[in-house]
């Protein structure tokens, strides 16, 4: 029971980290942007929220498989992403990415623009302004997005099953272990694992609520 939990924590943590890096970058690019091009980028980032996991899993499988150009190139570098825990990280990162991006974008857009205007007239470079003004002031929303991404990555199932399979100890994350236990008729194990995952999700959601409540109070 602890092996799928540890694996899930590791996959979710790495996914949340990757989604955080990508999501904060994208959010800072997208903030205050209008126009068809940016709407399109925004739409593509948000696709995992609406696409069925099977479609996402299928896309990942055909792009990362050893038979694809990208997959074979990665393979030549010694990186195998299909049916490895790395594949689970890729799937969970992509699914978690829009959650960080949306939350971080809202937080970044809520930073008053006069502060950024003043910082610009004071001669500081855009990246310095982002790191010293925008991010410190948007931090709560960004963090809430990362925690949400972690929770979502912890619960990722469909695309992960397709890209990483169900290999105990290697790709069998908590949700997949639950699926396996149900399929094998091991209801006691399924119950335990489900309870574990539900408790983790509740703890994470409560911490997000605490974070976002602070935002609205300040």
């Amino acid at each position: 029971m602890t092996i799928p939990l540890l694996l899930s924590l590791r996959v979710a943590a790495l996914s949340a980290l990757l989604a955080a890096i990508g999501g904060i970058t994208l959010a800072s690019l997208l903030a205050h942007k209008q126009g068809l091009f940016w709407h399109l980028i925004d739409g593509i980032i948000n696709l995992p929220l609406v696409l069925p996991p099977t479609v996402l899993g299928y896309y990942l499988l055909i792009t990362l498989s050893q038979r694809s150009p990208l997959g074979s190139w990665l393979g030549s570098l010694g990186i195998h992403l299909t049916f490895t825990w790395g594949g689970a990280v890729v799937a969970a990162s992509i699914v978690a990415l829009p959650l960080v991006t949306q939350s971080a974008r809202a937080a970044i857009e809520s930073v008053p623009s006069e502060l950024l205007d003043v910082a610009r007239t004071l001669g500081r470079a855009p990246l310095a302004i982002f790191l010293t003004i925008t991010l410190p002031l948007a931090w709560r929303g960004v963090l809430a997005g990362i925690v949400l991404a972690f929770a979502r990555a912890l619960g990722e199932f469909g695309a992960t099953l397709m890209i990483a399979g169900n290999i105990p100890g290697q790709t069998q994350t908590l949700p997949i272990a639950i699926y396996d236990a149900v399929q094998a008729g091991e209801s006691a194990r399924a119950n335990q694992l489900s309870l574990l995952l539900t408790s983790a999700a509740i703890v994470l959601l409560v911490s997000i609520r605490m974070l976002t409540n602070r935002i609205s109070r300040t």
Binding site: L61, S65, Q66, R67, T82, F83, I167, P168, D180
Partner: peptide, 19 residues
């Protein structure tokens, strides 16, 4: 470690590089 699934599902996973 065992990974159980329908034979056809596993065959396709092997074709996609499952280790």
């Amino acid at each position: 470690a065992f990974s159980y699934a329908a034979t056809g599902t596993l065959a396709e996973q092997i074709r996609n590089g499952a280790p």
